[in-house]
Computed example of a mutant assay.
Amino acid sequence: MLRVLKYNIDFSHINYTVEKFLLELGYTRKIITHLKKYEKSITINGKWAYVKNKLQLNDILTVTLSETNDNNIIPNKLLFDIIYEDEDILVINKPAFMPIHPSLKNYDNTLANALTYYFNSKNESIVFRCITRLDRDTTGLCIIAKNRLAASILNAQTKKHEIQKIYVAICEGEIDNSGEIEAPIAREKESIITRCIDFEKGDYSKTLYKRLRYNKKADISLVQLKLLTGRTHQIRVHMKYINHPLIGDFLYNPHNTLMNRQALHSYKLSFVHPITREKMDFVAPLPTDMQKIISEITI
């Protein structure tokens, strides 16, 4: 799949080298090295250019990103919703019970399989790069990068906590109106999956929460959560830590069977587009199984 990007050089970038200009835009040295391997992947005014060439006013710098999809993901027609798509990204509303990546027990039922089928049907091919990953049973919004530059810039935003993620969950009991949970998370001993609170060996973790509704009859709360860090199972572990575990969470609350999965939904994503630098905001409504549980409780 090709992505062609054109830049019109203005006064602020006169005498910049191509390399310096691209680094300023978010290209990594690894991407630039990759570009150097291919003829005419970088041109100035239509002529093949080197990364040490200097730019002049009104030059047209063209960068052609190309790559071959060789990850051997099996295409499979699976249901999922595309909230937004352009040349660089997709925003997906992932359904429940769909893993992100193929694994030994989930070889052809993942989001990667579904997107491979989707792009094959359009005679396109991309390397699957999921930026904001979700657990298998968690629903909602996640970002897919369609090229290595978009992925690099979005991953940098993730590391700087510039991608804002808001979740909605249903938890046991009547939670406080609002608060924060600041407790370090570590891998539980002798487990490759389960996490726990560990004040000696855990990684710093912080979650903000706000109660949206409380159903006294069912003794459940609808809660909005904002992650200030991005640890594995962070919301699930933090909510258990304050004695309000998520309903249906077989791993951290196995005795609750109100749902057949943890009641957790990636509700809102806000970030800056990696190429256009436009502010992007997306919302995905609650899935039907969570709506059914909360019945008259709405956001």
Rank of each mutant, 00 (worst) to 15 (best):
L134H: 13
Y50H: 15
A96K: 01
E172R: 12
R136N: 13
M290H: 01
E162Q: 12
R213Y: 10
S266D: 09
I153Q: 08
I163R: 00
E172H: 05
I60D: 01
A151M: 13
N155Q: 13
I100L: 05
E180L: 00
K292Y: 12
S121A: 06
N260E: 11
Y167V: 06
Y16V: 11
N260S: 11
K189Q: 14
K47E: 10
K54P: 09
A151R: 12
L25N: 02
K206T: 09
Y209M: 02
F119Y: 13
L35D: 03
V63A: 01
K77E: 15
I293Q: 06
T138P: 09
I44P: 07
E39D: 09
A114V: 04
K30D: 15
L65K: 03
I92N: 08
P254T: 05
I193F: 09
M1W: 00
L23W: 01
D289H: 03
D86M: 00
M280N: 12
S221P: 00
I181S: 08
I82D: 09
F119A: 10
F80K: 13
G248Y: 02
K105D: 08
K54A: 02
F128M: 14
N106P: 04
N177M: 06
T62G: 13
H265A: 05
S121I: 02
K77I: 14
R261N: 07
Y252T: 10
V168Y: 10
I185M: 08
